[in-house]
């Protein structure tokens, strides 16, 4: 028997057990094969439950597990790093017609994915809170600020932070449509940004502070935005090159 035959039967609960498998005493393997089916389905479903806790709470155990079953057959993990499993789960949810009355659900899953990426992102040394104060005012416009590898910005038309907080029983934050994902120390956070801050933060990735401020939406509260970036260790010191 090839491993392709084994896997094909493993992934389809209604498929017959492959020939050539027994109980060791001459009888067909029967539901013993289901132990492997069950191990694969349960372990991957549990990985998705752990990775998307708010999505799981909102859909409920039965609905989530049914959807997870379809997803794991369509998109099994591409490598053994199960903590990274679920890239694309948000897009998969977007394609499920019965979920159309929850148009925010794919964005919520994307937010949870971003938090998980932040948890495992590379470390950096946080930029000290007084870094701007210690820079001569004339040099500030040319200053390059470096985002931590964990830092991400999500823009969404949906009140994701409220939905997530309610699902997980957390205090309900204000939703602004722009979310900062950052990792102060080791625990990722998702916090609301001032309206218009997202273009500014994205601009910091590839331009110095002065031009980035010009790229920001007019009227954006950049003081608060910068304070949030520092408070949440979203900025790091540049790597020293030898």
């Amino acid at each position: 028997m090839t491993q392709s035959t084994f896997i094909s039967a493993l992934l389809h609960p209604d498929a017959p057990v492959p020939d050539g498998l027994s109980d060791g005493k001459g009888r067909p393997a029967g539901r013993r094969f289901a132990v492997y089916r069950n191990n694969v389905a349960v372990s991957l479903t549990e990985a998705l439950q752990a990775g998307f806790p708010a999505t799981y709470r909102i859909l409920g155990d039965a609905n989530f597990n049914t959807i997870a079953g379809g997803y794991l057959r369509a998109s099994p993990p591409s490598n053994p790093m199960i903590h990274a499993y679920g890239d694309g789960f948000d897009r998969y949810l977007a394609g499920i017609a019965p979920l159309a009355d929850m148009p925010w659900l794919p964005d919520l899953a994307a937010l949870e994915l971003a938090l998980r990426h932040a948890y495992h992102a590379a470390d950096g040394i946080p930029l000290p809170a007084d870094a701007l104060a210690r820079t001569a005012p004339a040099k500030l416009p040319a200053l390059h600020l470096h985002l931590a590898p964990a830092t991400q910005v999500i823009c969404t038309p949906h009140p994701l932070l409220s939905i997530r907080a309610q699902a997980l029983g957390m205090p309900r934050p204000e939703d602004t449509g722009e979310v900062l994902i950052a990792r102060p120390a080791y625990d990722p956070v998702a916090i609301p940004l001032p309206v218009g801050a997202a273009p500014f933060i994205k601009a910091l990735c590839h331009m110095p502070l002065g031009p980035a401020m010009e790229a920001a939406t007019e009227g954006t509260d950049l003081t608060t935005t910068l304070a949030l970036l520092f408070q949440n260790e979203a900025l790091i010191q540049p790597e020293k090159t030898a």
């Binding site: 493993l10 191990n39 990985a47 099994p76 591409s78 053994p80 199960i82």
Partner: peptide, 12 residues
């Protein structure tokens, strides 16, 4: 545990 189609998170 790995096949062309993916990684199956069990010891087969």
């Amino acid at each position: 545990s790995t096949h062309d189609s993916g990684y199956f998170n069990d010891l087969l």
